[in-house]
Design a protein around this nucleic acid. Structure first.
Length: 1167
RNA sequence: GGGCGAAUAGCUCAACGGCUAGAGCACUCGCUUUACAUGCGAGGGGUUCGGGGUUCGAAUCCCCGUUUGCCCACCA
């Protein structure tokens, strides 16, 4: 039931940021301070207006033309429309945007496909809860609303949240191709879902089967596992005795079927008989020979005995042999059920064969006999699958051993599949709890065997604490409930095996690689995928099936169905017996081609209404649908599991089943970025479907229907799967609504800016599984950020206390997100809600500010020079060669070249924190701390240096753009106004679109720019400068005071580093003569340098400070001499370590010894 | 129960068998220094969870244990 949604998003300014103050982003001057909010909206609109995020399939399909590009595609993991995006989404989407923007700049035709997911059960639950909260819904949903009316309510909600989510992504700067935004239930996706279902159904890969679901008896619907929570309760283990009888034999089967078999018909097994069969249980030794024997089962749910259809015993149980061929008779019901052997049954502690077996907690209370209630317990149901033949035979036919004893409201009922009620009528109509008490009561008063026997059916009960699953929504205890469901046969090798093959052939790669293991193991142990849900919000299953009142000329219908089948309009299956249909469908399904003969054969024999399942390919095939309705066939009311449409995401978003240009150009995609929890739910299924529905080698654009061979040999939907870390709070707990520890990305964007948030998140994206982000509070009274006071709540979580005090004024109070979420407090005017934030984002904010200021300074330099030079400089077109520039420029170019290489390899390997760290160090440590400081005295006069400066800032803006798109775009515009001179070896391609950095070329730096000699010389200068600064700090020499450096004879020539050292260390002279006045010595590379003029003549040099400094130097050097000496004196080291290591260590030791001696000499001269 | 991680400075994290174990925040000292105090310079702070092993050499590899997180399965 697809709800057509209009997604023709207009390319119009749509950023919702406050309008920028006049002049804030004016082209003339950059504001003194970087205020993100002044620019984000403006820049966003510029991108959108230029359609710079739009990916054009024609450029991919163009082949080798000038405009031809390789595709780079990322499909967004569509966020659920249940709620606003949280920080985890911000993290996930930042990573995708970094990849998309980087590849767009690298010249790929980059498509980031956006969209949202309808999230079936989650959304329906949220809306239902909302309606209840607003009083619009009371009692059962299905009574209060029609399907259409409720879906309409959800639709309104979905529109609201889809808009919120889309807005959040845009505020973050996500460069999705917003023209192509999809929703998993829009018309295009619905068509893909319909076609995919049809093909799987036609190919025998969808079938109908029985399965236990979590049934919520209050809301009367199935609920998903993740919609349940466990609650520990104090319950009891009840030990019940089941009398042993002989089987009735075949003659009783008909009577049983008719429900007329009297309990007295069973033939008891006596203790003497049992002993004769080899029963040797000490505890039963005292029972009188003539009395009826029994076995004892242990259960927490005695009332379910009404649905028992077997008792199981472990084949290794020594008692099993004596019981072969015997049965038990259920008290009151009179049902005779088989004893089956299954190793699932835990042996009691006394019989356990191994220590492991004895240690099994179940062994403590096990009796060795397990009552099997296949319709009301998942394990029992599995056990039933293994013993289906014998259990069904005893129960009277195929599927009969599945006895459902509950009505949908979980009262005991004989109307939902239970017919052999016998003497158990007294329980009918009772609730589960009432029935439990009454069953126990009856078992206490009744006895095994004859009236004279003393053995009560009830043996004992012992207290037992265990957990029961409850429904999140109604809090009712969930009942395992048997129902008919649709399955995808993913166990078929065309699906699961094909998914693993994609991994083995390296067509699909996980990053980090360890996640491939979870993926592989999942497929190795996969079970068929239940795709039906008893909901209203979702794609309704396109199968029409016989209702209870099926009628009409079925043979005529069959003729029509066969014709429509051959026309590809329907696929159908049917069976004459509703009870067995599940088996017919799950065993090799009759293909459409066999259907006719099958019908001739089966239909003629039994005059019962046939059960049809007709899958209709096109939703508007009126002829077919009307014909089906005419004979009483109705569309299945269930909807598909949300993941069915998600699994088609790489196909549906690109236009499958039509061979669109988009599908041809962008499938398979390049990378999928997601968290590990949905490797199985989503990644696996996308791979299976893409391989199944896409032809080998992809499609040719042309608009025809895509036909695959149906063998699962198509391409995987993506080449790389990047599994990123999960963000937790400061306590290592998951961020969740109920803990109130979530952080809204929009709050961070407001307080720190989108760039700062993105940078910080990227910086956190390490290769580990989890990253912690301590959550702070913003005081609503003062705006201060502070760490809250924590408490441990009843569930053991460490949470902020519900009420917090303002840090500076403790009389002012506020409530926390946790307080509100837990219902402990409500926000009020006196106690407003404190927003969550994290001081971790300061990192990104500071970095953005640094970039802003550095660029502003560089621009000021360039502007001044432009003004002074007039037109002349702009005409200088000849490239600048690295060889012709100064040391610091060569060093900077070398650093840039390395920075580009490092960023490239980090991005290639999905190491986002390495990338962030790399650009951070390049800008802050290299460019700001050293380059800018070094060129201050010279840049005004040196045109080549200005060319390097401009190229450096340009390069860094490009490298930073993927992670900080807004601020770099603003600065790029300003930088672009200055004429650029080519630097040989550094390629900075101009923007392809509207002068926007987002479309500019990724920097390409030739390896020739890497200048090891310049790096070495610069490093030598830097070491000297750092040593001088240390002395200055120790002696508290004012920054502005110029001091004199005395270099010893034999010191290396500073060369080009001489002027740099003077600038950076605050020297006014470098002398080769010894100081005449007071001076301080320090050593670099074991050479004694001295500094003079540290103080005015009147002040004495502080020998205390000097002594302290030297003492530490001596200590450090002593330690390193010891370490190196120890290493070298180890005979194995010289023999086995690589020679260059040994040589290096020797040199280090030599140097350390010389320096130590020098420092010691200095220290002694002080005394 | 099965699988996958983590444990390194007060906090959040790097270091992928070999530099004296490094960053950011916090802390200490100094600095309004004409890009930036959201800053600049300098500094203190480490038994790399514990115990074994492999190796010339271990934070790194292996084994055992402790603590902790996640995913899957299960809970008569």
């Amino acid at each position: 039931m697809a709800q057509p949604t209009d997604h023709s998003h207009q390319q119009k300014p749509e950023h919702n940021a406050d309008p920028a103050p006049a002049g804030a982003a004016s082209p003339e001057a950059l504001a003194k301070q970087f205020r993100p909010i002044d620019h984000e909206g403006v820049i966003w609109d510029r991108w959108i207006n230029a359609r710079v995020f739009h990916a054009d399939s024609s450029r991919v399909l163009a082949g080798a033309g000038a405009e031809a590009r390789k595709p780079y595609t990322i499909l967004i993991p569509p966020p659920n429309v249940t709620d606003r995006l949280h920080l985890g989404h911000a993290f996930n989407n930042t990573i995708q945007d970094v990849l998309t923007r980087a590849h767009r700049m690298m010249g790929f035709e980059a498509l980031w496909m956006p969209g949202t997911d309808h999230a079936g059960i989650a959304t329906q639950a949220v809306v239902e809860k909302r309606l209840r909260a607003y009083g619009e819904l009371k009692g059962a949903l299905k009574e209060a609303f029609t399907r259409d009316a409720f879906v309409e309510k959800i639709q309104v909600f979905k529109d609201e949240y889809e808009a919120v989510i889309t807005g959040q992504l845009k505020r973050m700067g996500c460069s999705c191709d917003w023209d192509r935004q999809r929703f998993t239930m829009d018309q295009q996706c619905a068509e893909a879902v319909r076609e995919a279902f049809f093909r799987l159904f036609r190919d025998g890969l969808i079938y109908r089967g029985k399965r236990l679901v979590n049934w919520d008896p209050v809301l009367q619907t199935a609920v998903a596992d993740d919609e349940c929570f466990d609650e520990e309760i104090d319950g009891n283990f009840y030990y019940l005795r089941y009398p042993l009888v002989h089987p009735h034999g075949a003659s009783t089967q008909r009577e049983r079927e008719a429900g007329t078999l009297p309990p007295s018909d069973a033939v008891p097994v006596t203790w003497s008989e049992l002993r004769a069969r080899g029963w040797d249980a000490p505890e039963d030794a005292a029972h009188a020979d003539e009395h009826q024997a029994w076995v004892t089962v242990a259960t927490t749910r005695p009332e379910t005995y009404l649905g028992d259809t077997a008792v199981a015993i472990n084949p290794h149980d020594p008692r099993a042999k004596a019981l072969k061929g015997l049965c038990v008779e259920l008290p009151l019901v009179g049902r005779v059920i088989p004893i089956v052997e299954d190793s699932y049954v835990v042996l009691p502690e006394s019989l356990a064969r191994t220590d492991e077996g004895k240690a099994d907690p179940k062994a403590k209370f096990a009796t060795g006999f397990l009552k099997v209630t296949p319709a009301h317990d998942a394990n029992d149901h599995e056990l039933y699958q293994r013993h289906k033949r014998v259990m069904d035979e005893f129960a009277g036919g195929n599927g009969r051993a599945l006895i459902n004893i509950f009505a949908p409201d979980a009262t005991i009922s004989k109307l939902h599949g239970w017919s052999d009620v016998g003497g158990a009528n007294i329980f009918v109509g009772l609730s589960r709890e009432e029935a439990r008490r009454k069953v126990v009561g009856e078992f206490k008063t009744r006895t095994v065997g004859s009236e004279t026997s003393a053995a009560a059916l009830f043996a004992k009960s012992v207290p037992y604490r265990h957990s029961v699953p409850r429904s999140d929504r109604s809090k009712a205890v969930v009942e395992p409930y048997l129902s008919d469901q649709w399955y995808v046969k993913v166990t078929d090798e065309r699906l699961a095996k094909a998914a693993n093959e994609a991994l083995h052939s390296h067509e699909l790669n996980f990053h980090p690689a360890r996640y491939a293991k979870s993926y592989e193991q999942w497929h190795d142990n996969i079970r068929d995928w239940c795709i039906s849900r008893q909901l209203w919000w979702g794609h309704q299953i396109p199968v029409w099936r016989s209702g209870p009142a099926g009628s009409g000329d079925l043979l005529a219908l069959l003729d029509k169905l066969d014709r429509w089948t051959s026309e590809g309009r329907v696929a159908y299956i049917y069976d004459y017996n509703p009870r067995t249909v599940a088996n017919v469908l799950s065993s090799p399904s009759p293909r459409p081609s066999d259907a006719a003969s099958f019908s001739d054969h089966q239909y003629a024999e039994e005059q019962q209404p046939a059960t049809f399942f007709v899958c209709v390919r096109k939703p508007r095939d009126g002829e077919v649908i009307n014909a089906l309705h005419a004979v009483g066939l109705l569309q299945d009311p269930d909807v598909l599991d949300t993941w069915f449409s998600s699994a088609l995401w790489p196909l549906s978003t690109l236009g499958w089943p039509h061979a669109t240009p988009e599908l041809a150009a962008f499938n398979p995609s390049s990378a999928l970025c997601t968290a590990r929890e949905i490797i199985t739910l989503w990644v696996s299924r996308m791979v299976m479907f893409n391989r199944y529905f896409m032809p080998k080698g992809g499609v040719e654009a042309g608009g025809a229907m895509v036909e695959a061979q149906g063998l699962g040999r198509g391409p995987a939907p993506f080449k790389d799967v990047f599994i990123h870390a999960v963000i937790q709070d400061g306590q290592g707990q998951k961020m969740s609504k109920s803990l109130g520890n979530g952080v809204d990305p929009l709050d961070i964007i407001l307080s720190h800016g989108a760039d700062a948030m993105r940078f910080t998140l990227c910086h956190m994206a390490t290769q580990t599984q989890d990253v912690r982000m301590p959550v702070d509070l913003v005081c609503p009274h003062t705006g201060e950020v502070f760490a809250p006071k924590f408490v441990t709540n009843k569930d053991g979580y460490v949470v902020p206390a519900s009420i917090q005090s303002s840090p500076k004024d403790p009389t002012k109070k506020m409530v926390t997100g946790y307080g509100v979420a837990s219902g402990e407090v409500k926000a009020s005017a006196e106690m407003p809600l404190a927003k969550n934030t994290s001081s971790k984002f300061d990192l990104g904010r500071n970095f953005a500010t640094k970039l802003w200021n550095a660029a502003k300074f560089a621009l000021m330099i360039l502007e001044n020079a432009d003004k002074a030079a007039g037109q002349q400089e702009s005409r200088q077109k000849q490239p600048v060669a690295a060889a012709s520039v100064t040391l610091v420029d060569r060093w900077m170019l070398s650093r840039l070249a390395r920075g580009v290489a490092d960023a490239n390899s980090a991005l290639r390997e999905y190491q986002f924190s390495v990338y962030a760290q790399c650009v951070y160090d390049l800008l802050w440590r290299d460019f700001c701390d050293w380059y800018l400081e070094a060129i201050k005295p010279t840049v005004e006069k040196d045109a080549s240096q200005r060319a390097v400066l401009r190229a450096a800032i340009d390069t860094m803006l490009r490298l930073l753009h993927p992670v900080m798109p807004f601020v770099t775009e603003v600065l790029f515009e300003a930088v672009s106004r200055h004429p650029r001179r080519e630097i040989t070896g550094l390629s900075l391609a101009p923007p392809r679109n509207s002068a926007l950095l987002a479309s500019a070329g990724w920097p390409e730096a030739s390896a020739s720019l890497i200048d090891e000699r310049a790096e070495r010389e610069f490093e030598g200068m830097r070491t000297l400068v750092t040593a001088i600064r240390e002395v200055r700090a120790q002696h508290t020499v004012p920054f502005k005071r110029k001091i004199m450096l005395h270099v010893p004879p034999g010191a290396p020539d500073l060369g080009a580093g001489r002027d740099l050292a003077m600038t950076l260390a605050g020297l006014d002279a470098i002398s080769t003569s010894a100081p005449s006045g007071p001076s301080v010595a320090f050593s670099v590379d074991a050479l004694d340098y001295r500094l003079s003029n540290l103080k005015d003549a009147a002040e004495a040099v502080d020998t205390g400070a000097e002594r302290a400094r030297l003492t530490k130097v001596v200590a450090d050097l002593t330690k390193s001499v010891e370490t190196l000496d120890k290493r070298l004196s180890n005979p194995g080291y010289a023999d086995k370590a690589p020679p260059h290591m040994v040589q290096q260590s020797k040199e280090q030791l030599e140097k350390a010894r010389r320096e130590l001696a020098a420092a010691q000499t200095e220290l002694s001269t002080l005394a």
